[in-house]
Design a protein around this nucleic acid. Structure first.
Length: 423
DNA sequence: TCTCCGATTAGAC
DNA sequence: CTAACGGTCTAATCGGAGA
């Protein structure tokens, strides 16, 4: 029986957030451009021009201000509603190319092309279709495993001669060795900054070094994950496609504040917004949670100020996804943790112990009370129909002080009629 | 000694 | 004018508590 070589493609959007912004602002095509994280804190997406000027991924924006002024680098606040919408359009197009796809992140998708003839042609068709229908430039990397597909994508991005497509399966064994010997090990999926330093101490510098490393030592020194990565680099698939997105096991809603907060009322207000967001996510996946955690944080970068980072957990007797119930607990926890005299910079809510709604851990002594979901159903319905924030819980967002800084956000081009550019 | 659990670490994007 | 550094998520591993 003929064995079909698996052919996995990783399709990755180029400079995704920046490219999204440029879709509606063609005048920004030649301008060095970056998109900032929430609160306009760090650079999270860079145009090629910005990369060339030395702006690093994740760099705090205030560190770039001088350079930005010198070279006219434009910084936009992030507009996640826009990015999510463009992402959905791209993913829908990709799903036309294969019955098996996995949306890996907002800008990446694995596409199983196994058994298809002429993958080069298919890949170029993917690029052209996505570009024509959405305006989004993408690169395609193909390999027999996810890890190699990712690496192939990296090659496609890095070498203009590839014209955005690279197929690892086209290489001879000798070519594979030559290629992998020229790629630093930290380009491998799953090998970050810390691990690459430790790998170097073991003489492992390139992808080829990792591929050939002594298996028992690697396992002993770096654990199962690294061993899987090594096998994947050798063409043995260890990481399966996840075609259906699993339910979240943990939901976190947190945010840094636009300015320091010192009063308990403002903290409670912020936390009520986080509760509302976290519970909405929980209901959207049809789950309920049995553990609620709330945390407060001062600004860890301000060494001159006293630090306080309390966190409290409550196990609930009965799981819930009701924003009002959760908010009562959250309020109580904030009250318990709050201490006067600190400048709070961040807070958050974490929901865990998550299981599908309707599954209750039965209590022998006390049968669960009937759960009334009508209020939350109505709230979700209204917020869906008339926009997020139409119906709120508690004071939810009444205070301006903690709201995040977004000084240069683009309009919601695709989700708000009023933002539609006038032609 | 074994198991469980929470906290910590590392990674991705 | 000055200060200004993200948010969510998973899996593995570690170390202590309790059985």
């Amino acid at each position: 029986m003929a064995v079909v070589l698996p052919q996995l493609a990783l399709v990755d959007c180029n400079n995704f957030y920046v490219s999204c912004e440029r879709l509606f602002r063609p005048d920004l095509k030649a301008v060095p451009l970056v998109v900032l994280s929430n609160n306009d804190g760090c650079v999270v997406s860079r145009s090629n021009e910005a990369k060339a000027l030395g702006i690093r991924m994740g760099q705090p924006w205030f560190e770039c201000k001088d350079l930005a002024e010198q070279h006219g680098i434009l910084a936009l606040s992030s507009n996640y509603a826009l990015y999510a919408d463009i992402s959905n359009r791209v993913m829908r197009i990709l799903s036309e190319f294969s019955p098996r796809t996995e949306v890996y992140s907002i800008d990446e998708c694995f596409v199983d092309l196994s058994g298809m003839p002429d993958l080069r042609a298919v890949s170029y068709r993917i690029r052209e279709t996505v570009l024509k229908w959405t305006g989004m430039p993408v690169c395609v990397g193909i390999g027999p495993t996810k890890t190699l597909a990712k690496l192939a994508n990296h090659v496609a991005k890095k070498h203009p001669r590839s014209r955005g497509v690279f197929n690892y399966n086209d290489l001879s064994a000798a070519q594979q060795t030559r290629l992998l010997s020229r790629i630093a090990v930290d380009e491998v999926w799953g090998v970050g900054r810390r691990l690459s330093v430790r790998l170097a101490e073991h003489g492992i510098h390139t992808v080829q070094d990792l591929r050939l490393a002594h298996v028992p030592s690697l396992r002993a020194g770096f654990g199962v994950v690294m061993e899987k990565t090594q096998r994947e680099l050798n063409g043995l698939a260890c990481i399966d496609m996840q075609e259906v997105e699993p339910d979240k096991q943990q939901i976190i809603a947190s945010r840094s504040f636009g300015s320091m907060v010192e009063t308990v009322d403002v903290l409670k207000d912020a936390v009520s917004v986080f509760v509302a967001n976290a519970c909405a996510k929980l209901r959207a996946q049809g789950s309920h949670a049995s553990v609620i955690q709330v945390f407060l944080m001062t600004n860890r970068f301000r060494k001159d100020l006293p630090q306080y980072m309390p966190s409290l957990v409550v196990p609930l007797p009965q799981p819930t996804n009701d924003s009002l119930v959760v908010n009562r607990w959250a309020d109580y926890l904030v009250e318990r943790m709050f201490r006067l005299g600190y400048q709070y910079k961040k807070a958050g809510v974490m929901l865990s112990g998550i299981s599908p709604q309707g599954i209750y851990q039965t209590d022998w002594l006390e049968p669960p009370q009937a759960v009334d979901t009508r209020l939350m159903d109505a709230l979700d319905g209204l917020n869906k129909r008339y926009g997020r924030g139409t119906v709120k819980v508690s004071t939810q967002g009444a205070y301006q002080q903690w709201q995040m800084k977004q000084e240069n956000k683009s309009p919601d081009y695709t989700t708000d009629w009023h933002a539609m550019p006038v032609v």
